[in-house]
């Protein structure tokens, strides 16, 4: 399936002199998980608001599901679910009551509404607490209730703004799991985050934002190759003692070698050095027991990219 769900052309939004989004070109296809990544203030939220017609573009065009957000906001909002940054609820109402308000705003009523609420609560695993007041919910539960609200309208596209912010690691893991399940149901998902490493695992494609511009776009592996100098982490288990460590340090492109325990080494390198590492261990008279490499971390790619560009901003998370 290659259908285009979101398409922005030279999308620009100015607030006075400040350019929040600067001629953005963006295409998202059906069934993708697309990550809008970048530090706070890079223009992610403004982009999202323009997609939903909640803020009007200064210039450029947006198409969401083939519709224009400024002309047909109701049709878009009926088909697109939006989970805002730290979504809020009516704390005095129960989870079910919060959901039924949203359902009614979408024109869903009666038995259909009850059925959809039950379904949505089940999908996010909140069926047991449906009749508890939302004020008693933990952050993770609130976030999942937010997803339930979005699922009520059976959206074709879900847009999430900083969905993992302020969640504990376990809740983040559960949440990303939920996102993967939604993708397998055929829903297109866009999510924004400044916690790059948290979301890189779920995104099919990412766009890196910086000062209103999307500076890099592609799969995480693509980006790693396109930005030379992105760090690779190589994990090595080898016998051989200090001689091995010395040999590793002498390899070109190695940034750092750390050793924890007697046999485990972590090597940070500018390129994928696995073959060279294996050779040098053997040449130093050691024995390779295990060797693996991490995919480059997005925040490192991001930081390197801007170091290269001599931009002061470094490190995104």
């Amino acid at each position: 399936m290659d259908e285009i769900v979101v398409e922005c052309r030279e999308l620009t939004r100015r607030y006075g002199d400040f350019v929040a989004v600067d001629s953005l070109d963006l295409t998202v296809r059906r069934g993708e998980i697309f990550g809008l990544l970048g530090p706070n203030g890079a223009g992610k939220t403004t982009t999202i608001l323009m997609l939903l017609g909640l803020t009007e573009p200064t210039s450029g065009s947006v198409r969401v599901l083939g519709l224009d957000p400024t002309r047909q906001p109701l049709s878009i909002k009926a088909r697109v679910g939006y989970l805002p940054d730290q979504v809020g609820f009516y704390d005095g109402l129960t989870a079910r009551e919060n959901l039924s308000y949203i359902a009614k705003l979408n024109g869903i009523r009666g038995r259909e509404m009850q059925e959809r609420i039950r379904e949505a609560l089940e999908q996010v695993g909140l069926s047991d607490v449906a009749d508890r007041q939302v004020r008693t919910f933990s952050r993770g539960m609130r976030q999942r209730l937010g997803v339930a609200e979005v699922l009520l309208k059976r959206p074709q596209l879900i847009v999430m703004d900083e969905p993992t912010l302020a969640l504990d690691p376990e809740a983040v893991r559960e949440f990303l799991e939920l996102i993967r399940r939604l993708k397998s149901d055929g829903i297109t998902i866009m999510l924004s985050s400044h916690l790059l490493h948290q979301v890189q695992a779920v995104c099919d494609r990412v766009g890196l934002f910086h000062k209103g511009r999307m500076v890099l776009e592609g799969t995480v592996r693509d980006l790693a190759q396109r930005v030379p100098g992105g760090a690779y982490r190589i994990h090595l288990e080898a016998e051989g003692g200090p001689a091995v460590e010395d040999a590793l340090r002498r390899l070109p492109d190695v940034i750092q070698v750390t050793c924890d325990g007697a046999q485990t080494y972590h090597i940070e390198a500018r390129s994928d050095l696995r073959a060279d590492v294996a050779r040098s261990v053997i040449e130093a008279g050691g024995k390779v027991l295990a060797l693996s490499a991490d995919i480059p971390r997005l925040d490192e790619i991001y930081a390197r990219y801007f170091q290269k560009k001599e931009v002061a901003y470094a490190g995104a998370a």
């Binding site: 906001p73 049709s75 909002k77 679910g81 939006y82 805002p84 009516y90 979408n106 937010g146």
Partner: peptide, 14 residues
């Protein structure tokens, strides 16, 4: 203050 405004306005209403 409850951070519900953006969510409500993201529903199909004006």
């Amino acid at each position: 203050n409850q951070r519900t405004i953006s969510k409500i306005l993201a529903q199909p209403i004006y």
